[in-house]
């Protein structure tokens, strides 16, 4: 994925354990994005992390993301909160959108905590969209006041410590036909929402735990170069390609971010990602092959 250069302009607290990170264009304007898009940030400690863009999609001089400090941080959110400094150049990927808005008679957005970030620009984009935003209490809910101010009654704030969880079955019962539901939040929330709104579009923080059939070896033909290589059971497709010097961009390496998307020309992939690969595409970090062979556009 093509990287862009940006500079950390500002890191400022916006709620308990949440900072907003402003990234300014270094030399050339930043690539455009649409509501729901995210970028990969490559941090100085070599870790790559995905964050939803939550600034103004029309602003090519600045990206904004918001980052919650994870108590069990492996070094991404901890680094941003504790060690990242203003003025530091950062590589930022081109924006990608697996959570895009599509036309529908109505839109309902359901956000939990830091899962609010993709919905900030989505609320601006759709005049009659409604938002249910839950969090423990107001102090831990970034942008809550701002959302109420901009969108008034279209935003329902639920403080679970005071109000308990929202009655989503009630919400579902009253939903106008054809309403498209988007949800972003912690796993407990996305799992619950999926049961009540079967057609919901989800964005998860972490991959969904799942079981796969045992890894099998398969063969890959790189159609453009004509090279054939073997993917052993204990190597990912991404790593097997790298072993043979076929560099493929990668980000999360756990099937969430979409950086390592490849075009499949023949053979049937075994999809193991959390994105939902479009037809004829696969994500090399986690997905494998159902049959003995794949032909890839490489």
């Amino acid at each position: 994925m093509a990287a862009q250069q940006a500079v950390v302009a500002r890191i400022a607290p916006v709620a308990e354990d949440v900072v907003a990170l402003d990234l300014d264009a270094a030399d050339t304007p930043l690539l455009p994005w649409t509501p729901g898009a995210h970028v990969d940030l490559t941090l100085p400690n070599w870790l790559t992390r995905q964050y939803s863009l939550c600034g103004d999609p029309g602003d090519a001089t600045r990206y904004r993301v918001a980052v919650r400090l994870d108590r069990l941080s492996r070094g991404g959110s901890e680094y941003i909160h504790r060690f990242l400094r203003a003025g530091r150049p950062l590589a930022v990927s081109a924006p990608r959108n697996h959570f895009a808005l599509t036309p529908a008679p109505g839109h309902l957005f359901i956000a939990g905590g830091i899962g609010i970030t993709p919905f900030l620009s989505m609320m601006d984009a759709i005049d009659d969209a409604r938002l249910i935003y839950t969090g423990r209490h107001l102090g831990a809910m970034p942008f809550a006041a701002d959302l109420r101010e901009r969108h008034g009654d279209r935003v329902r704030i639920v403080e679970t410590e005071r109000d308990g969880r929202p009655d989503l079955r009630q919400v579902a019962a009253e939903l106008a036909p054809g309403t498209l539901v988007h949800c972003c939040g912690p796993a407990a929330m996305t799992d619950h929402v999926q049961k009540i709104f079967p057609g919901v579009r989800l964005e998860r923080f972490r991959p969904q735990p799942r079981t796969h059939r045992p890894n099998a070896a398969f063969e890959v033909l790189c159609a453009r170069s004509g090279r054939t290589l073997a993917v052993p059971p204990n190597r990912s497709l991404l790593d097997a390609l790298a072993d043979e010097g076929v560099a493929v961009a990668s980000g999360c390496r756990e099937g969430v971010c979409g950086s390592c998307e490849l075009r499949v020309l023949d053979g049937e992939p075994e999809h193991r990602d959390d994105i939902g690969a479009p037809a004829g595409r696969m994500y090399a970090c986690v997905s494998r092959a159902l049959g003995p062979r794949l032909v890839l556009d490489l």
Binding site: L72, S73, R74, S236, R253, E254
Partner: peptide
């Protein structure tokens, strides 16, 4: 587990 969780890499 809370300590090991902070040390996860890739898979």
């Amino acid at each position: 587990p809370d300590v090991l969780a902070r040390m996860q890499t890739e898979a």
